[in-house]
Write a protein that binds this DNA or RNA. Structure first.
Lengths: 327, 327
DNA sequence: TTGTAGGCGTTATCAT
DNA sequence: ATGATAACGCCTACAA
């Protein structure tokens, strides 16, 4: 490792005080042009970079944001978070932030991570995923005045914080309308048990599109916990009703893959996972890179020296349907 | 945020000097039992946690390690890195390290990240993935004396650093032997163009298993760049030879999925991605959590105050075959 | 065994 | 516009 170059190295090289170097970095308008140029060139030739640990001791800011990484709980779906994480890392860097990872399997374990990461590493803020009804994480963060943004609406709670989400209802409605346009009259829905914000949202979109078209009917939806086998079974049960659907909209690609093997019907999945692409499954794609970028934008806003006052920001992005052979 | 509790808070609470608190933390054997207990209880009641930024200024250690996160370059395969990343995060935490992410699309971009992360955040070390022939990253890191471990052998280079890898040749051989045991006499291989260390390794394993059984033959392997459609085409070409294979071992699940749609033959994939599980594809599974844990272990060893001297450590893990309907 | 003094690299405050 | 000084929280001498 080459010799350590600090603000003092730069200062002596440019024949100014350390403070002037600091001013060039943080409040350049206070420095005379000529001096600034001299310092800048010293910075460049020396390859100086501010030490964030030292800076943090003064400012309390680490330029580090925390994000949780999941175990791949539901197989196929894991790639959604993966893509989001990649987008987050990419968007954070130009904004001057780095992403620190932690794992947790439930809210309280995640809160324990917050405590550790805040006290030891002084993280500046967090991006939360997997919001759900009765989310205790947001309450804790708000209580302790920690900046954070959620990717996912605060389901069932009034939004007192900024969030970014993808309009799942709109996505499901788009998929449903696509099937209607293709001539389908009876279109089923395969989703998760009621109570999941994301799942209920997608279900609502399906229902609304059917109602718009005067095609709503009873007993066309099934709720199963995510799983290939269960999805297949549920779809068979749909297909053996008196008037079976000819197509089905699914709340996930995993469900859709199960549905597809159950018989001959049009199927549309959700999340456009790599598996969907590989097997020609039409699927609703979330703009994850955009969602991640928006999360960074909102969080960076919260972290600004002069935080923009005003109510929390909400961003609802539109997904789009990727049409393949399946429907 | 509750009131900040530093080493001084603890000291005054326990009625000792700051130094004694520091000793309790770093060199407990120097402190009398009674004093130590008093300090410990003060630490607990106050919820004190050492501030790593301050510690780092003295020790130069950040307890942060860097890992690259990829764009999902080849679709299906993305989940391999995802699982590795999860394992790394989980293994790092109990060892007292946190994972910082960065993105890069080539070696030189990655090296630029090293420079930034080392100078600004003082990362303690790196875990590299995607090792390849002529890898300039390891040379740079070694030159600058930065601790690092690679997940993946230093293909084509003499190993002057510690690494962890999974024995792809053994995995492919296991898959091949499984097919042989099932009665297959002509077994093909679908892989990537020559020159990829990982791909060539898997190819070698396939070949060896065939030779062992006296089943080796020419024109049974195909090399394509990863892609569902290409894999399908290549497999068809295999199936239209004079003496077509009845089974095929593939270097990835993506290739395997393509092979499967090409016709009626037994197929075994590689990496056991979620997609493989969903469609009943047999696949060779890498012990990624174990690999990640070993990477952390080796890197932590390099980072120890008293680094264990001796040659670099190499860990080669064995994958295992997950048998499903496909073969 | 415990305490005192100084400094890591930075920025805030206050002079000049 | 620039510089001197102190302080952030911690650890490493060294002194008591």
């Amino acid at each position: 490792m080459s010799v350590k170059v600090t603000i003092a190295t730069v200062a002596s090289h440019a024949k100014v005080s350390r403070q002037t170097v600091s001013n060039v970095l943080n409040t350049p308008h206070l420095v005379r042009d000529e001096t600034r140029a001299r310092v800048q060139s010293a910075i460049e030739t020396l390859g100086y970079r501010a030490n964030l640990a030292a800076r943090q001791m003064r400012t309390g800011r680490s330029r580090l944001i925390g994000v949780r990484i999941d175990p791949m709980r539901n197989g196929i779906e894991g790639s959604v978070l993966d893509r989001f994480l990649h987008g987050l890392t990419e968007a954070a860097a130009p904004a001057g932030y780095r992403v620190v990872l932690y794992t947790a399997t439930d809210d309280s374990a995640e809160i324990a991570n917050y405590e550790e990461l805040l006290a030891s590493y002084t993280l500046d803020g967090f991006v939360l995923t997997h919001t759900h009804h009765g989310d205790s994480r947001t309450a804790w963060l708000a209580l302790h005045d920690i900046p954070f943004v959620t990717f996912g609406r605060p389901w069932g709670a009034t939004a007192s914080h900024s969030w970014v989400d993808v309009d799942g209802a709109a996505g499901a409605a788009t998929a449903t309308r696509h099937l209607i346009a293709a001539g389908h009259k009876r279109i089923g829905f395969l989703g998760w048990p009621e109570g999941s914000g994301v799942g209920d949202d997608r279900h609502a979109g399906w229902l609304q599109a059917l109602e718009e078209a005067g095609l709503a009917s009873t007993n066309l939806d099934r709720r199963v916990v995510d799983g290939f086998a269960e999805a297949e079974r549920a779809t068979r049960s749909l297909l053996t009703t008196r008037r079976p659907p000819t197509a089905v909209v699914c709340a996930s690609d995993a469900l859709a893959m199960g549905a597809r093997t159950a018989g001959d019907l049009a199927v549309i999945g959700f999340d456009d996972t790599p598996a969907a692409a590989a097997i020609g499954l039409s699927s609703v794609r979330q703009p994850l890179a955009e969602a991640a970028a928006q999360c960074v934008r909102l969080l960076a806003g919260l972290l600004d020296e002069v935080p923009v006052p005003g109510p929390p920001d909400h961003v609802l992005l539109q997904p789009h349907l990727v049409v393949r052979q399946s429907g």
